[in-house]
Design a protein around this nucleic acid. Structure first.
Lengths: 195, 195
DNA sequence: CAACAATGTAGACTATGACAACAATGGTGT
DNA sequence: ACACCATTGTTGTCATAGTCTACATTGTTG
């Protein structure tokens, strides 16, 4: 019923795209290789040529996720001008936006992070913006000195935690912005080197 | 091969106990009802009498998890004496301990939270300690005034985020205590009503 | 002690992931 | 041009899982 040529042409990309949609709409546990193949219009064995097993597809999905997250963080950072606090708020908001919009994907990104080396690297690239941010803050004296990653981790953890609370439904989505703003203010006050 | 009576006696509890172990050791996605039944020594259909489907078992698991978490938080709170900061640090540490030791279970607890009403209540009971804590802090002036849940959420989010970072392997487990201490200090500095 | 509810068993059905053998296609070197 | 071969899809099979239904055993209660 289709005049699709024997070779799909870019099956791998098509599978990933469809998988990302399914994950967003119905979660990771509902993602089936066979259903994916059906939706894309290939036989149930075809995906195997591109992903040895289900986990490999999930890993690829996670890697693409880090790619996109990195882009969005960078964009938010750049868009905010030179002011440190503005950049901080913009970047934090961007992270939370991603985390709540693609909660299942983020979960995947965090979960898969143990295994693949390429994932490690993708994650580090995505988070490099945060490190830059912290370094600027320290240079301007808005943040206490010290290892940038140590200070950054506390900020990162807070933002990540807020996203988790909203995602889990423990906090309503409407309170997201308020909460992020609170946390950022908190962070800035708590980080300023004691007067 | 067994003289086990036809009726197990407390199948439900046995299933939950075994399930909790499996989840801790191999994660949620590896939990199989049939395998569970085998391990407990009943037929593959037996669990159905106690849990209509797989999700029901997971919900029960989550509820038990909240029960235990609540107990551990309460215990940490009580053990710490009357001092606010001591209580704060003790409780935060207890939460992170639970979250990293039973990461998969916590994930379950967060994920299932949408659906069941009994879960909602179990969660609220477990987290009531945190609210108490915040209220004490505000009464003593260590924390800024305002809605207790709003302030508490920022703290909670941070602790939760730290646990997530460690669980995901983005931060090594050795840095856990250091990070929690940092975050707590941060939180206290950031929360004190501006001098 | 006779019904009846609760609990466990056995078998069937469908779906999935993984694997292997086979088919079609596209590119490459001569 | 064409034979060869790597790539990519297809088809069939297997083991396992979740769920459902019919049936068996046991405990309880009037």
């Amino acid at each position: 019923m289709s005049d699709r040529p024997y070779h799909h042409g870019n099956l791998r990309a098509a599978l990933l795209a469809q998988a990302e949609r399914t994950v967003r709409e119905r979660g990771v546990q509902d993602l089936s290789l066979r259903e994916l193949a059906r939706e894309v219009g290939v036989s149930h064995g075809a995906p195997r040529r591109h992903f040895p097993d289900r986990q490999a597809l999930l890993d690829a999905l996670a890697e693409a996720g880090f790619e996109r997250l990195g882009t969005e963080l960078r964009s938010a950072f750049d868009r905010a001008g030179d002011d440190f606090e503005a950049r901080l708020r913009s970047t934090a908001a961007a992270y939370v936006r991603f985390a709540t919009r693609d909660a299942a994907l983020l979960e995947l990104m965090f979960a898969g992070k143990h295994r693949e080396r390429s994932l490690q690297e993708a994650a580090e690239r995505a988070f490099s913006v945060i490190l830059e941010l912290i370094e600027q803050g320290q240079a301007e004296g808005a943040l206490e000195a010290g290892e940038a990653d140590r200070v950054g981790l506390v900020l990162f953890a807070t933002v990540q935690g807020i996203a988790a609370l909203v995602t889990s439904g423990m906090v309503s989505a409407e309170r997201l912005d308020e909460l992020v703003a609170d946390a950022t203010t908190h962070f800035l006050r708590g980080s300023r080197t004691a007067a």
